[in-house]
Design a protein around this nucleic acid. Structure first.
Length: 107
DNA sequence: AAACTGACTTCTC
DNA sequence: GGAGAAGCCAGTT
């Protein structure tokens, strides 16, 4: 096998998954963690989003909490900017939380 | 190699 | 439903 295969770090896998989230949909950290291989890596996923070296490529704003609640996102005005971006994509909101029943990424 | 940190999740009161 | 505590994982120091 070619040895030039970089060792896929956990974050690398996460970036690949998050980049696949369709527009107008959102995913929870736990869900991404599960897709990454282990449902308990939600915390690690958050860290990967924080460093997020591929900003437009990895729509970290489509990643929300288990309740669809907007957390993290230190960019711009914080969750406010995040909410605005999601609204622009057609994500349904309920107060300050995303309506996962309609806008959660359906894998 | 050990300890610390953090954009999480879940349980219990 | 809100507040507090525990568990888990990966990356950084």
């Amino acid at each position: 096998m070619s040895s030039h295969q970089k060792k896929m770090t956990f974050c690398g896998c996460v970036y690949t998954i998050v980049a696949k989230i369709p527009k107008g949909k959102v995913a929870t950290y736990g869900q991404i963690a599960r897709l990454a291989g282990n449902p308990k890596t939600a915390r690690a996923v958050g860290m990967c989003m924080k460093i997020n070296p591929f900003v437009p490529r990895v729509p970290c704003h489509r990643v929300v909490g288990s309740d669809g609640r907007l957390i993290g996102f230190s960019a711009g005005k914080g969750v406010k900017t995040k909410k605005d971006m999601l609204l622009a994509e057609g994500v349904q909101f309920r107060n300050d939380s995303v309506d996962l029943l309609q806008s959660q990424w359906n894998t």
